[in-house]
Each structure stands twice: as structure tokens, then as C-alpha cells.
């Protein structure tokens, strides 16, 4: 009897330790990033966020350009990806199973391709294409910047947003759809006026998941953004993002520069935390079916 209790207790503690490891790592992550940012926070302070002058050589670390680039690429990407993802989710939910299942799997596979490959594709296919198309209209364009960044981000975010939307829409009670159709709605009216309203929270959660992914995506953007640290003022401008700056600058950085990069990472982390914290209650524990 005693032995059973002992192994049981040991097993329970071992499992509990796993959960504690997770908590500890998360706390350590925040602590390390904070600690490493201190130097930059002390020397650069608020100019880190409010100045757009990013010139490590003479010690100016204003990341407003990267922040603006992050916001702009993310926003543009979502503007393109969300309607597409919603439409694709509707398609999959309405199609007969022999079409819906392979299409859904194919869309899921989009998310399996590593982001560095999307970056390459952007660099070697998308950017030259944009450049040549625009030059045909007499517009000189480098091919890099906001447009290809947000396009590649949109493509990468789409499968995630669409998959969550698919699940959210599939949970709509049949009776609700039937009663909407019963008062004489078209399929679209039933979807837009009734189903979307009733699934608002979940759909918003899906968009937030896309937002989180787009904000933090690094490699794909790094390949095509052009690495311009100024605040972009036009669609055709080059840009950079927080994540791309981190990956681009880190190898050569030391001292305050390195610390400034940690501080940028801290900002990104705070944003992602805020997004996750609002998303979790919106979609609940989705994977539990």
C-alpha cells in the first residue's frame, strides 16, 4: 500500500514540475528581456518610441519607424487576409465533404511551409514582379517595402485566420441558420446578418490570432521590407518592422544598440501579450471539441 502511494505521489509531483517549468520559463523570459533592455531605457528613454532617428553608429535609437512599419504592414495584411480567410471559411463550410476536406487540408498546409520560404518567394518572385508591373505604368519602384511585406504577411496569416473562422462558423446552431432562411433570407443574408452577429466574439478572436502572427512574423518580412528605418509615408515606401529590425541588426549590435533591440523585443512582447490576453476569452479553448 505504501509503495503505491509513493510512486503515485512521485508521478504527480513530476507532472506538476512540468507545469511549473512552463511558468518559470515564461517569467524568466519577461525578466531577461526587461533586464537586458534597462540600459537602453535609461539612455534613450522615450525617444526609443517617439523618435524615428535610428542610427546606431552615432547612438540614436528611435524606433518609431519600425513601430509604424509594423503597424502598417500588419494592418494592410489583415485588410487583405481577413476577407479572404472569411470567404474561404464560408466556402469550406458550404462545400460538399469531398471538396471541403481536401481544400481544408490544403489550406492548413499553407501554414506548414516555413516563413523563410515565403520570404524567398517574396524576394525572388513577388518583388521583381511588382517592380516590372509598376514600371509598365511608368512608376519607378524598388519592389521592396510595405506592399510586398503586407502581401506576404497576408498569405502567411490567411490559413490561421481561416482555420479558426471555419471552426467558429461550424459551431453555429443549425436552428439559427434555419430560422434565418425560414424568414426568407438568402444564404448570404443569413450568414452576414445572423450567423456573423452570433459568432462575433469567435470571429474577432480569429482576427486577433492573425494580428498576433502578423505582428511577430520576422523572416518573411525581413526578405522583402527593404530595411528602411524611417516612418513610411507612402504605399511604395520601403519599411522595416520591429521583428525584422531585431533579426537584421542583432548580429552586429553591442552595448546600447543591443539593449535597444531587447527593448524593442519587450515592446513586441507586451503587444503580443495584450493580444493573447484579449483573444483567449474570445475563442475559449477552441481545440477542445
Amino acid at each position: 500500500m505504501r509503495r503505491i502511494l509513493d510512486t503515485d505521489t512521485a508521478f504527480r509531483w513530476f507532472c506538476k514540475a512540468g507545469a511549473i517549468v512552463g511558468l518559470a520559463v515564461a517569467i524568466a523570459l519577461v525578466a531577461v528581456i526587461l533586464k537586458e533592455s534597462m540600459l537602453a531605457l535609461r539612455t534613450a528613454g522615450f525617444s526609443l518610441v517617439f523618435s524615428a532617428e535610428w542610427n546606431p553608429a552615432d547612438g540614436s535609437f528611435g524606433a518609431a519607424g519600425a513601430l509604424a512599419g509594423t503597424a502598417a504592414t500588419t494592418l494592410l495584411a489583415l485588410l487583405m487576409a481577413v476577407p479572404m480567410a472569411f470567404a474561404a471559411a464560408l466556402f469550406v463550410n458550404a462545400a460538399p465533404p469531398n471538396v471541403a476536406v481536401p481544400v481544408a487540408h490544403a489550406l492548413d498546409l499553407l501554414a506548414a511551409i516555413p516563413s523563410v520560404i515565403y520570404g524567398m518567394w517574396g524576394l525572388f518572385v513577388l518583388c521583381p514582379l511588382l517592380q516590372s508591373v509598376l514600371s509598365r505604368f511608368g512608376i519607378e519602384y524598388t519592389g521592396f517595402g510595405l506592399v510586398p511585406s503586407s502581401l506576404v504577411l497576408a498569405l502567411m496569416v490567411l490559413p490561421y485566420v481561416s482555420a479558426v473562422m471555419r471552426d467558429v462558423l461550424a459551431q453555429t446552431p443549425v436552428a439559427l441558420v434555419e430560422s434565418a432562411m425560414g424568414v426568407g433570407c438568402t444564404r448570404w443574408e443569413a450568414t452576414w446578418d445572423v450567423v456573423v452577429r452570433s459568432r462575433k466574439a469567435g470571429l474577432l478572436g480569429a482576427i486577433m490570432i492573425g494580428l498576433g502572427r502578423a505582428l511577430g512574423e520576422t523572416m518573411a518580412v525581413l526578405f522583402v521590407c527593404g530595411g528602411v528605418s524611417a516612418i513610411p509615408t507612402g504605399l511604395l515606401d520601403g519599411c522595416t518592422t520591429i521583428a525584422a529590425t531585431l533579426a537584421n541588426d542583432f548580429a552586429e549590435a553591442d552595448g546600447v544598440h543591443k539593449s535597444a533591440l531587447f527593448a524593442l523585443g519587450g515592446i513586441l512582447l507586451a503587444l503580443e501579450f495584450a493580444i493573447q490576453a484579449t483573444t483567449i476569452p474570445l475563442i475559449g479553448r477552441r481545440s477542445k471539441k
Binding site: 523570459l29 528581456i33 512574423e217 523585443g265 493573447q276
Partner: peptide, 12 residues
Amino acid sequence: VMMGVPSVIVGL
């Protein structure tokens, strides 16, 4: 929350 932490930050 950790599911949403970008991989660059984990790298940092």
C-alpha cells in the same frame, strides 16, 4: 500566451 510569443523574442 506562450503560443503567441513571436519566435524572434524567444531567440532574444
